[in-house]
């Protein structure tokens, strides 16, 4: 199993995906939460707009991303925007190199997930005692310093939980890869994260349950190790608070 190059490349695909998606989702949802938390006027409107994509399915998002925003033709939104600046159209999904498809997949998941993590951060921000900010204001701290020395440390428990969830969810990515990259019923040989690999190994033409189960066990071990390590960090964080 571990010597199978296809299995190893699925782990590499997952790592590449996680390196893109985990930090960007983290930063954008934290940023959105900070912006929304400070807003008085129309706060619930903005919160709803960012939260709304959570109700959308990966299949529908994949449809919009694949056939509308990043469709390779000139009237796809991304290519239309490029066209207004005089740039050439880009075939977003039909090329393996350069790997533009990563942009398509990452932005789709970003749009679907940011709202949920923003809600988690919002709840964390609202739990921070206002007296901490008052004390900081008396000491003359503002802007970035307040964020760096009060907001961020106070959000440590939330941040750890968000990172863990992001990582587990990235690990389980399947829907958007399958729906965006599969065309005319066939999936390209590249960009197969672990679940896509397992799906085609165990349930595709091979029907190789043994291989599929072995892969599942290895994946479970990896995710359990990550979860235990993260749990350690989380507990350490709790003790510090």
């Amino acid at each position: 199993m571990l010597r199978d190059p296809a299995f190893r490349s699925s782990l590499v695909t997952f790592l590449a995906f996680a390196v893109f998606i985990v930090p960007t989702t983290f930063v954008i949802s934290l940023g959105a939460a900070l912006l929304v938390a400070r807003t008085r006027v129309m706060q619930s409107f903005f919160r709803t707009v960012f939260f709304l994509p959570t109700a959308c399915s990966y299949v529908v998002a994949a449809l919009v991303w694949k056939m509308s925003i990043f469709s390779g033709i000139r009237s796809g939104l991304a290519n239309a925007v490029l066209g207004w600046f005089g740039a050439d159209s880009i075939p977003w999904l039909s090329l393996a190199d350069p790997p533009w498809y990563w942009l398509v997949i990452v932005t789709a998941r970003l749009w679907l997930q940011v709202g949920f993590y923003m809600i988690l951060f919002l709840a964390g921000i609202q739990r921070i005692s206002p007296t901490l900010y008052e004390a900081a204001a008396i000491d003359g701290a503002e802007g970035w310093k307040v964020f760096r020395h009060i907001t961020l440390p106070q959000l440590r428990a939330t941040s750890t939980a968000v990172l863990l969830l992001l990582l587990i969810n990235a690990f389980q990515a399947f829907d958007e890869f399958y729906n965006i990259l599969s065309t005319f019923g066939t999936y390209p040989p590249y960009a197969r994260p672990p679940l896509v690999y397992l799906y085609y190994t165990a349930l595709g033409s091979g029907q190789d349950f043994g291989h599929g189960s072995a892969g599942a066990v290895i994946l479970t071990l990896i995710i359990a190790i990550v979860a235990v390590v993260q749990g350690r960090i989380l507990r350490l964080g709790d003790r510090g608070d």
């Binding site: 929304v36 409107f45 925003i69």
Partner: peptide, 19 residues
Amino acid sequence: RYSALVAAALLFLVPFYLL
């Protein structure tokens, strides 16, 4: 802050609009 929020909100509504 409001400009950033409005821009981000519009961006988030684009996929619904396209649909």
